[in-house]
Design a protein around this nucleic acid. Structure first.
Lengths: 229, 229
DNA sequence: AAAATAAGTGTTATTATTACATTTCCAAAT
DNA sequence: ATTTGGAAATGTAATAATAACACTTATTTT
């Protein structure tokens, strides 16, 4: 006889996404203004409900794809939030995902369509439900990631300057880093290719552009080499 | 108008617990032999279903309490497993929790009653569903925990020898450690109290017993001081 | 030609980690 | 009483990683 689980409770399962981006200055998150009740008009993470035919990763991908148009976004499951009254309408648990995207490639039209907006972490408005808590947790996770793998790939444009990479790390870790030590460390990892090309927008002298060497980068990640800056 | 979520799918949500213990030699996990279908007679993690009135932590506590009799078990949410067919009976997601308990205090009767058994990690049988995967993930998490906080508190008896503490770390990290370096490092953390008392079971000379200094230990954990051995 | 501005570059000091071998203590055996 | 066996206890030197630190270069604008 199969146990048919008939007597067990079923619940709604939401998936909410913390989307990080980097605009060469600040670490940002993408938020939307809710156009439905409850909490209409307030800012929130983007989210949706898990469907019967999806895994959680599927659901997170679907939701991310809607808002960004991208398909292969870096994404990790973060945590299950389950306070009884976290959603006033009905018992709903939410699995938070965090994602990293390159702001520059991002489709402006989709953003408009969803009344979405990038906020730098410090200036982000207060969010609905337990979304603030989710963001806090995501920032901590992102920090851990940043020192366990070189996450720049996901957040920077294809070509970038050392300064940009350093700024990215400074905004993730929320601390100033020493320029020389940073460069030495990064070069030691042997995951960047220095290009001939220079970026002339930031100074008269211009600064060399770099690219990630995808192969070495991946090997580096696999080996679990740390990127402690 | 409130959005009432009526059209959204609801799912069963299980909670499965990976319970770690340490018996002075090996790191172990507690498994039960299923006495119901599906997979009756096979080994599995202990688990249960989330009830409408509980948070996930509540559910994990309830399940842990049933099997161990303990109330304040160290416990962390691990990951939500959501493959479509992970449970052959019905679409069920499972939130895995990992827990640490001191084998010695553990109630033998409860173990018997549930046909539970401690297995050392290497000798554990293959488990039902995706439980092997859960255990793997739990081990990795435990390793990370072991180097970010001194987890001994949860897994060792109140009084223990340096050797035991070292053995514990060796079995968690799955590598041999140097005795002198280990002791120097641990002493440097200033979280242990050396007692007058000796443990005479392991040698003629006997070895000093230690206790954790709960206050310093907690401060240490709060400060996020690493316990990288 | 001078000024302004960010880019680029190495060395030393400090700290943390690793490697490593001998002596001490005690009980049991003789 | 003496010897023996076995684990416990102990410190130092070598190496590696991290942190601190300031001047020169290249280029455009004035």
């Amino acid at each position: 006889m199969l146990n048919n689980y008939n007597t067990e409770d079923k619940v709604l399962l939401a998936v909410d996404c913390i989307i990080f981006g980097f605009d060469q200055e600040d670490l940002k998150i993408l938020l939307i203004k809710r156009d439905f009740e409850p909490e209409k008009g307030k800012w929130s993470l983007i989210g949706g409900f898990l469907k019967m035919t999806e895994t959680l990763d599927d659901a997170a991908n679907r939701i991310l794809n809607h808002l960004t148009g991208f398909d292969k976004i870096y994404m990790e499951q973060l945590y299950n939030f389950s306070k009884i009254d976290r959603d006033p309408v009905e018992r709903t648990l939410s699995v938070a995902y965090f994602a990293l995207i390159n702001i520059e490639d991002h489709d402006e039209k989709l953003i408009e369509q969803y009344s979405a907006k990038w906020f730098s972490i410090e200036e982000a408005p207060s969010l609905i439900f337990d979304h603030n808590q989710m963001v806090q947790k995501a920032i901590l996770r992102l920090r851990r990631r940043a020192i366990s793998k070189p996450i720049g790939f996901e957040l920077l444009p294809e070509k970038f300057t050392m300064r940009q990479l350093q700024k990215l790390y400074e905004s993730i870790l929320d601390e100033k880093l020493d320029k020389r030590n940073f460069i030495n460390k990064v070069n030691g990892l042997d995951i960047l290719v220095k290009l001939e090309e220079k970026d002339m927008t930031s100074s008269r002298k211009g600064s060399y552009l770099y690219q990630f060497d995808k192969e070495k980068y991946d090997r580096n990640v696999e080996d679990g080499i740390t990127f402690k800056i």
